[in-house]
Design a protein around this nucleic acid. Structure first.
Lengths: 287, 287
DNA sequence: CGCATCCATAACCAACGGTTATACCAACAG
DNA sequence: CTGTTGGTATAACCGTTGGTTATGGATGCG
């Protein structure tokens, strides 16, 4: 009985969410599609993986046997695929970045890295915000500069902690104040990260600091897009203090939001990735 | 990048055969189908697995990284799938048999096993010769009585060594002789096991004892089929001495073939299967 | 009861995985 | 040089699969 690895991912996600609907949302497929896939998998396996209860699913005994196997298979494949891709560019370390980091972080890091491992080359990769792991998840990056929070599959080391500011169109009524308490922004329409960004989207909408759900006026997958939309008056957006200087433009003003917890910029890597080059790069970032 | 486990089997088989054509034959698909699948896999992976040479293929560096991973993934899945199936029938041991064993082997074995593990039940499963592992390979059996040779994935213990005989239609010119040297059978049409039986098919055609290829008149997947075909005069067939009594019928005669190496009947199990129940059954077969 | 939640089915469509037939290419024999 | 052999890739075709939206149906709850 051969399965598609996609089916195993479906199985694992559904077991973790314990409802088809929630798992389907997480997997970005429709609920019927997932339902059908699981049924088909069970039919081909010859036994049920889940028991259907009125409120969600539970694993059958066979399902609980197969769940760790599915996890193991997927982990082995993901690791192996990343390894194979790395084999194409031996002695090359790919550094992913969600947004131009600035702050004079990566330049000295790359220099120190080159000094430690002379045979190696470093390539920088700019990734949109639709992938909050900046390529770590799909193996297209080896290390990455990311904003927290990030999935627990990755290890991180915080580099910088910065207050969050808000970007407003110059003509906005709040633009006159020297600083803006978040309370005044509760009902403002926001420019948000795409849904694929997961918890990171919530962080930059500051959902933890809200009594209700945010108003999302638009989505954007890159910093320029966001600021374009803000300048146009479509919505407003939070950003890190260090980025306010980076993205200055006419028609746009940035103000601190003093009562929000700060943002954390970190360097991240795959928890299972123990290569010397990765370790060396980490040491180079913060010597 | 998610792959189908079938694609990984295709990849492994092709790497082992090192030509698409040979691998396609082994996998029982057409050569273009396999070629297309491999191409599609490479396209989705983003790198080539093979280098195409005028005479067959060799692995690229990425292919050689991915090959052991693919093997590992497939092994993990096959093992897990078998475990999950076993979870449906806890405390049940499935004994596969290629053909009714007779020889008073399995009856006392089952009795002794029941005595050692009282909580367990034993179920006997009769499997056609199209699966020379009698269900071990696909996990539908836990232990099996099989004729050697068998794939090295399985451990075996030889139980009985028996001379090979030949089954002939009663009117056959050689039927008058008390014994038949194999040399006289070289040009006779044979009833063979199906191609899926692999090396076992060759063994019962005695290809090792031939200067050229055998003449195959028909294929059969069960003992009765074979003897039916032999009685009808379609072809002749080799069989183990102990089976000559089992399958006596009018119009059929069996004669020893003294110059062939004997056949070996063994009990087999999955090399990786260390369960107590399996060990207990093995001890019960030959105390 | 009426409503919300969640799974399954139906109907439909694009993409996939297989088939056979055939083109193509490199090596080799005559 | 040319025909043959041994191999891979492409073309055309077709049933199945995997996805979509719309809808039905069961269950628990205010």
């Amino acid at each position: 009985m051969d399965a598609h690895l996609r089916e195993l991912r479906y199985f694992v996600a559904t077991a973790e969410e314990s409802t088809v609907t929630a798992a389907a949302a997480r997997l970005f497929v429709s609920q019927p599609a997932l339902s059908k896939q699981l049924r088909a998998l069970e039919r081909r396996l010859g036994f049920d993986l889940f028991e259907r209860l009125p409120r969600g699913l539970t694993l059958t005994s066979q399902g609980s046997v197969l769940l760790p196997v599915a996890r193991e298979v997927l982990a082995a494949w993901d690791r192996g695929y990343a390894e194979a891709r790395a084999a194409a560019h031996p002695n090359q370390l790919v550094v992913g970045m969600q947004t131009a980091v600035g702050r004079d972080l990566q330049r000295p890091a790359v220099e120190r890295f080159r000094a430690t491992l002379p045979g190696w080359t470093v390539s920088l990769r700019l990734v949109g915000w639709d992938d909050p792991t900046a390529g770590l998840a799909d193996g297209t990056s080896d290390v990455a500069f990311v904003w927290l929070p990030i999935s627990a599959d990755f290890a991180t080391r915080v580099l910088i902690t910065e207050p969050r500011w808000v970007a407003l169109p110059a003509h906005h009524p709040l633009a006159d104040r020297p600083s803006v308490p978040f309370e005044l922004l509760l009902d403002e329409p926001f420019v948000a990260l795409p849904a694929t960004a997961g918890p990171l989207r919530d962080f930059w909408l500051a959902v933890d600091a809200r009594p209700g759900p945010p108003v999302v006026a638009a989505e954007a997958t890159a910093a320029d897009e966001v600021l374009e939309l803000v300048t146009a008056g479509v919505g407003i957006a939070l950003l890190a203090e260090g980025n306010t200087g980076l993205y200055q433009r006419p028609g746009l003003v940035c103000r601190p939001v003093p009562d929000l917890p700060p943002a954390e910029l970190a360097v991240a890597w795959r928890r299972t990735d123990n290569r010397d080059a990765v370790r060396a790069f980490l040491d180079s970032v913060q010597p």
